[in-house]
Design a protein around this nucleic acid. Structure first.
Length: 458
RNA sequence: UCCCCGGUAGCUCAGCAGGUAGAGCGGUUGGCUGUUAACCAAUUGGUCGCUGGUUCGAGUCCGGCCCGGGGAGCCA
């Protein structure tokens, strides 16, 4: 007999006298002559209630069935007289697949703290909250591909190991096969696997630019790595980024795409993950649904960096970091702009050239670059992007200003030599997006097995 | 990396002014009932993060270290 998933059983159109269900026991309630098992198989948030009559052969296995055990049930799907479910299964046969010793099984039916569940990350997807969360993560990843595919973008698999030490996006993880030795005895990098220094990528942007200047519109969606010793609820050493790059596009197009992407993803999750999302609205963030609808429907505010500075200066707020033209926006400034002033997502664009990266396109004023950040309430910076500098001479001058060696960028500069076109793109932190969508406040709780400083279990 | 807060039973915590540990939940056993985070009763359960010190005596006071959380920096 084919296994019926719990999701399918719960949405059955009619009763069936033969059904096969497999899953894990979430809880068991005994009555006189009857036992009620709640079965979950990960297909959805809800459990399937299985009724075991003490008079049937199925009851023989009951004394091995505890919370966490894996079981097989054959029986009949019938309308439930109970109030909490439409359907239930009357077990004809019940078999234990894998037991779970109740003395040592760490998940109780009561709620656990996120901090505790992090220490048992291999078991936390068996809880309602984390099951829901990782189903939403999966569905969102699908929605990312769907969004770009519908708009004619090609998916680029950017390299994970990179030989460029040049992106300036933060400390990198070294990749090597050389033995671990004291500095004096360390072999030359020429003898290393690649014959040169190799690192894990911090961004697929540069590679995406190369491909955008061939395939038109591309995007990468993959893991990135930062060896920063930053211990906050918003940073991880390994995280996933979505990085679209468009040829024949300017900053305006870039902001439009960013806004479309965020709206489209939120709309998708609202439609496809309603039941899972409801859990977060109920137990994690009561304002979640209203906030998500606003993010999906309202148009985002847009303002230049200089407008943002003026707004902050007029705010009458006393900030810990003083506001002045030329300083980068601090967390407190970003929060004021998006949470108090705009009360919705806001795109801040055209930043002073000194506080942004070398590859961002210099504006006509000679002072600002065509950069943009999307700030959202509670999360802060969700997207960072720019129109790229496509003019060879300007880019070479910028490299020089940043003290970077043009030889290391010969291939990046080549794209400006041969058929250069205006192009633009951005990076969206996938986990930050998931935090926004679920209301979860710690990045470690939206990553299956998070990697943070001093933390590499599982 | 810096600044705060914390580490006591499997989990969540209490332990007041130093006198060698408690509750709820969970687990177990029994009872009861088509049960719904079931209910009632009994019961089980601890190198009080590690390490030095002060003291007749340290979960409690002091130093160092480790780990966790929050905030900041950096960023996505």
């Amino acid at each position: 007999m084919r296994r019926t998933r719990v999701l399918e059983a719960l949405h059955s159109a009619q009763a069936t006298d033969a059904i096969l269900v497999k899953g894990w026991v979430r809880t068991r309630r005994d009555a006189k002559g009857l036992s009620f098992l709640e079965i979950n198989d990960g297909s959805c948030l809800k459990n399937l209630q299985v009724v075991v009559d003490a008079a049937t052969p199925a009851a023989a296995a009951l004394d091995t069935i505890t919370t966490g055990a894996a079981v097989t049930i054959e029986g009949a799907l019938v309308a439930s007289p109970g109030k909490s479910q439409q359907w239930e299964v009357h077990a004809g046969a019940l078999r234990l697949l894998g037991g779970a010793d109740p003395d040592t099984y760490p998940l109780q039916k009561k709620r656990h703290t996120d901090e505790f569940l992090r220490t048992i990350a291999h078991l936390r997807p068996r809880t309602n909250k984390y099951g829901a969360l990782f189903r939403i993560r999966s569905e969102t990843a699908f929605a990312v591909h769907q969004f770009f595919r519908q708009r004619g973008f090609h998916h680029l698999h950017a390299p994970i190991i990179t030989g460029s030490d040049c992106e300036g996006a933060g400390e990198m993880f070294r990749v090597t096969t050389l033995p671990f030795l004291p500095p004096a005895e360390r072999p030359d990098v020429a003898d290393d696997f690649f014959g040169k220094e190799a690192n894990l990528t911090v961004s697929g942007q540069l590679e995406a630019e190369l491909f955008a200047c061939a395939l038109g519109n591309v995007y990468t969606f993959g893991p990135t790595f930062r060896a920063e010793n930053s211990n906050t609820p918003r940073h991880a050493a390994e995280f996933w980024m979505i990085e679209p790059e468009m040829a024949f596009a300017d900053l305006e197009d870039d902001m439009d795409l960013g806004e479309d992407l965020v709206k489209s993803l939120v709309t998708h999750v609202l439609a496809e993950c309603a039941a899972d999302l409801e859990l977060f609205a109920r137990f994690v963030d009561p304002d979640l649904m209203a906030n998500l609808r606003a993010v999906a429907e309202e148009s985002y505010a847009r303002m230049s960096y200089s407008e943002a500075i003026a707004i902050l200066q007029r705010s009458g707020k006393s900030f810990q970091f003083p506001v002045a033209y030329g300083v980068d926006l601090q967390t407190e400034h970003e929060r004021y702009l998006t949470e108090e002033y705009c009360k919705k997502p806001v795109m801040v664009h055209d930043y002073p050239r000194e506080i942004k990266s070398f590859y961002m396109r210099l504006n006509g004023d000679g002072q600002t670059v065509a950069a943009m950040d999307l700030l959202v309430p509670r999360i802060g910076e969700l997207i960072g992007g720019s129109q790229r500098e496509e003019r060879l001479e300007v880019l070479e001058r910028r490299l020089d200003e940043f003290g970077l060696r043009p030889e290391a960028y010969w291939w990046y500069l080549d794209i400006r030599r041969f058929g250069a076109v205006p192009h633009a793109g951005f990076g969206l932190g996938f986990e930050r997006f998931l935090m926004m969508v679920t209301g979860v406040t710690n990045i470690r709780d939206v990553i299956p097995f998070p990697r943070t400083p001093k933390h590499l279990e599982f």
